[in-house]
Write a protein that binds this DNA or RNA. Structure first.
Length: 183
DNA sequence: TACGTGATCACG
DNA sequence: GTGATCACGTAA
């Protein structure tokens, strides 16, 4: 293993995720993540490789973006070595860079809850499936060191009841009491 | 709590 | 081809 996906999910908290979309830079602090691994039933790669999940099997450091419920783009970071399908879903951000643009994209008047949820933050940062398989260390999509989290909490992942026992794994991580964490 | 929404995948 | 399902968000 390159590194355990749950460790990487924790380490991503507090970092700043930025994109350039339509020539505009927006970004936010990562405050909530979830880990997924091919060895548990919550993961898209549990039953093996398919056209959709193929990028999860690539060398880590690229994006896995897919459409969920026909509406929402979901943004993950692939984390393991080639052939080992692990990924971290980014579930919530605290908006920091280009907040005015983010508010326009979200058609919001208040900054509240702009990016609290995996489907919302992709819209806010202009991430869609065209980013699938692209590096997360590029001029259009990158991660910066920012804050060192003081208090991380974990719990079961959201929306994966189909995973049976694995739905109870405490693989969701967030910053304690952070107001930008999703419901 | 209910449902929109359309890609995806396991069938045949 | 077809149909069930889905790592959500919003309205109510």
């Amino acid at each position: 293993m390159r590194s355990d996906v749950t460790l990487i999910a924790r380490q991503l908290l507090g970092k700043r995720l930025c994109t350039r979309a339509d020539g505009i830079v927006t970004g936010g602090l990562i405050v909530e993540t979830e880990a997924y691994s091919e060895r548990e039933k919550g993961c898209h790669a549990y039953k093996g490789i398919t056209p959709r999940n193929a990028v999860m099997y690539e060398e880590g450091g690229i994006a896995y973006v897919y459409l969920c419920y026909g509406i929402h783009e979901m943004f993950n970071i692939v984390t393991n070595r080639r052939g080992k399908a692990d990924a971290v879903l980014i579930r919530a951000l605290e908006p920091v860079v280009g907040v005015d643009v983010i508010m326009q994209r979200m058609k919001a008047r208040s900054e509240k809850k702009l990016t609290a949820g995996p489907g919302k933050l992709t819209k806010a940062l202009g991430i869609d499936r065209s980013r699938n398989g692209r590096s997360v260390s590029s001029a259009d999509l990158w991660i910066e060191e920012a804050e060192t989290p003081e208090d991380i909490v974990c719990g079961p992942r959201i929306g994966i009841d189909y995973a049976g026992d694995d739905a109870h794994l405490p693989w969701r991580f967030s910053l304690r009491d952070n107001p930008w964490v999703s419901k």
